[in-house]
């Protein structure tokens, strides 16, 4: 076990391809290109496409909100960074389930 900096990392192809789908969905405001909401539910009870489509749209907005914090962290002015951070009474984040990593929704 050691702390080691990774170098020459490139964003994976899957992320680039799938991100394009996300951008298209956010620009059009619908799921063109990928039939999320309209997909026929199969008899298989494991398939949760309809509910997931709603979650995914929320996820896009959440990402945008999160990004602003990332950028603030990187700003050269630490005071600006501090001021821009808000406490939980001022955010509209999803309630987190304690004790786990990010779950499907």
């Amino acid at each position: 076990m050691k702390i080691s900096k990774s170098k020459d990392y490139k964003k994976p192809l899957y992320a680039l391809g799938a991100a394009a789908v996300l951008v298209a969905a956010s620009l059009t405001g619908c799921h063109s290109g990928v039939e999320l909401e309209g997909e026929t539910q199969t008899a298989d009870s494991d398939d949760r496409d309809t509910s997931t489509s709603i979650v995914e749209l929320e996820g896009v907005a959440e990402t945008a909100a999160s990004e602003s914090i990332v950028e603030n962290e990187e700003t050269a002015d630490p005071t600006a960074s501090e001021e821009s951070k808000v406490d939980c009474s001022e955010t509209e984040d999803e309630l987190e389930l304690e004790g786990g990593v990010a779950l499907a929704d």
């Binding site: 964003k11 994976p12 899957y14 992320a15 799938a18 991100a19 996300l22 996820g59 896009v60 959440e62 990402t63 999160s66 990004e67 914090i69 990332v70 951070k85 808000v86 406490d87 939980c88 955010t91 984040d93 309630l95 987190e96 990593v101 990010a102 499907a104």
Partner: peptide, 24 residues
């Protein structure tokens, strides 16, 4: 699956923490 999703969305996984910012 979270790592894959976060990579697609350019989302930093540790942002959910932020000590008191998200959930107290």
């Amino acid at each position: 699956c979270s790592k894959i999703k976060e990579c697609i969305r350019d989302k930093n996984p540790s942002e959910r923490c932020h000590l008191g910012v998200r959930q107290m």
